[in-house]
Every structure is written in structure tokens, then in C-alpha cells.
């Protein structure tokens, strides 16, 4: 399904880091006292790379992603997104965030939902470059549904709209927090394959949180496995499969070995 013409932007391992996290700690204050969600976490995401994040529930995967997105204050250490702090990166629109729910405005059509980021924010109206909303809807396979309201779309289609919306201002990094977690397996497979295609075609750096081991192995060039309470890096696994990846490859011995390794790490974590 991948076309040879698609400019495949494969990350060069020596490329500059898109995201670099050093000694990151995040603490939450609860009534019972402070809870350390993340404890001295460090890793780098290469530019143009696709990194998945796995970990037992409560290990702080989402917190880590939200700290990068400037949605959670950090207690210690540093995060850099293309050399900027999360706040600077947010204001510069360096990254986009895709939530587990599509989070669409129910009164706006698909195409108007995709355009929302162009209408708000400091740079609204003067966004330097942006993609056409219609083109993006086609990119995510929603050609002909531009004028549909969210309640007229299925769950998978709504999530596609939210991915198109994330891409509309051409972010350099796409942060995805279990975006397909609420979908059934068939739709999830389909969207996984399409996400890889979109990633290759746009050259965006992707960080993807999931709790599905096969999903983490299928999508990621690297997989960051976290351990729980407090969240620490268990292992940063390189995943090397022939490109482009196709769903059928999940039955190969190679793939099963990788998932077995990841699962082992999760059980120890």
C-alpha cells in the first residue's frame, strides 16, 4: 500500500534529537502527600523518528507525554523540543497532541474541526505554513466526508479527523496518547498501518503512548519501556524491521521475538 513515490523520510540515527529528556522528575501533590510519577527519566527521540512508549498502567507514560506537551509542570530535570523548552515549543507550535478521545467540536463539520488550530493561538491568521484541511482529510482517508458532523462519523473516523487536525499546522512532532485505545482491533490495525504511511509521507517525528505490545512493536523504531511507581526507564529498545512495515509481518518469528522481549520487560517492570 505504500507508494514508491512517497518521500520516505527514514530517520538517520545520527540525526539531531527532536526531543531530549534529561533527569526528568514529575511529582503530584495529593491529599495523602506527594507522589513521584516520574523519577529521573532520560532519553532522546531522533528527528523524524517514531518512538512508542509502553509500561504498566500508572507508570506515568501519559504524564511523560503531557510533560513534553507543557500540560504538566516538571519538578526536576529538563525537556527540550528542538532545543526549546516545552512552553517555547508550544508557543512556536512545534508539536501537536492527539488525545485518546477525538475531542472534536460537535457543532463543527469535519473540515472545520481540522481548521480549528488555524483560528486560535497567538499565531492565528499568521501561521507561516499550513496544509489544506481538505488535503489532510484525504490523507487520513476521509475524502468526501468533509461536511459531516462528528456525530455522523464512526469512532475511527472521528479519530482520523483529530489526526488531520493535529497535522494542519505542520507540527514537527506529533504526540499521541493512546489514540486508538478506544477502537476495536480491526480498526486499530488499519489505523496503525495508515499512521505509518502518514508518518513516512510527512516526515513528522512521532511519540506514541500505548498499552498494546503488538502496537508498540509494529509502529515504533524504538520503544521506551517504563517501569511503575515511580516511573523509570526500564529499557529503550531498538526495533529493526524491514521498511515498509506491513500488518502481515506480525506473524513472522522476528516480530514475535520482539514482542516477547517487550512483554518480558513489562512483566519485570
Amino acid at each position: 500500500m505504500t507508494q514508491g513515490t512517497a518521500a520516505a523520510v527514514v530517520a538517520d540515527p545520527a540525526a539531531a534529537a527532536a526531543i531530549s529528556v534529561r533527569e526528568l522528575s514529575v511529582r503530584f501533590d495529593t491529599e495523602a502527600g506527594g507522589v513521584t510519577a516520574l523519577d529521573r527519566v532520560g532519553f532522546e527521540v531522533p528527528e523524524g523518528g517514531f518512538v512508542t512508549m509502553l509500561g504498566p498502567s500508572g507508570c506515568g507514560k501519559s504524564t511523560l507525554l503531557r510533560a513534553i506537551a507543557d500540560l504538566v509542570p516538571i519538578a526536576g530535570g529538563a525537556i527540550e523540543v528542538f532545543g526549546r523548552t516545552p512552553e517555547q515549543a508550544r508557543r512556536a507550535r512545534d508539536f501537536a497532541f492527539v488525545f485518546q478521545d477525538a475531542t472534536l467540536l460537535p457543532w463543527r463539520s469535519a473540515v472545520d474541526n481540522v481548521r480549528l488550530p488555524l483560528e486560535v493561538g497567538r499565531r492565528a491568521g499568521q501561521v507561516k505554513q499550513h496544509a489544506e484541511a481538505e488535503e489532510l482529510l484525504a490523507l487520513v482517508g476521509l475524502e468526501g466526508r468533509e461536511d459531516a458532523l462528528p456525530h455522523e462519523l464512526s469512532g475511527g473516523m472521528r479519530q482520523r479527523v483529530s489526526i488531520a487536525r493535529a497535522l494542519v499546522y505542520r507540527p514537527r512532532v506529533l504526540l499521541m496518547d493512546e489514540p486508538f485505545g478506544a477502537l476495536d482491533e480491526l480498526k486499530r490495525d488499519k489505523l496503525n498501518e495508515e499512521l505509518l504511511r502518514i508518518w513516512r509521507e510527512t516526515g513528522t517525528t512521532v511519540m506514541f503512548v500505548t498499552h498494546s505490545v503488538p502496537e508498540a512493536a509494529f509502529l515504533g523504531q524504538k520503544c521506551l519501556v517504563l517501569s511503575a511507581q515511580p516511573g523509570r526507564v526500564r529499557e529503550y529498545v531498538d526495533i529493526e524491521f524491514a521498511s515498509p512495515r506491513v500488518l502481515g509481518m506480525r506473524d513472522t518469528l522476528e516480530f514475535v521475538q520482539v514482542t516477547a522481549h517487550l512483554r518480558g520487560l513489562l512483566e519485570e517492570a
Binding site: Q3, A6, L136, E143, R170, E201, G203
Partner: peptide
């Protein structure tokens, strides 16, 4: 991206 998006709708 604009150029590569032409190969849209493949999937």
C-alpha cells in the same frame, strides 16, 4: 509534505 501528500488516499 505538500508534495508527498499527493500520494494520499493510498490506504
Amino acid at each position: 509534505a505538500a508534495a508527498s501528500m499527493e500520494g494520499k488516499g493510498a490506504g
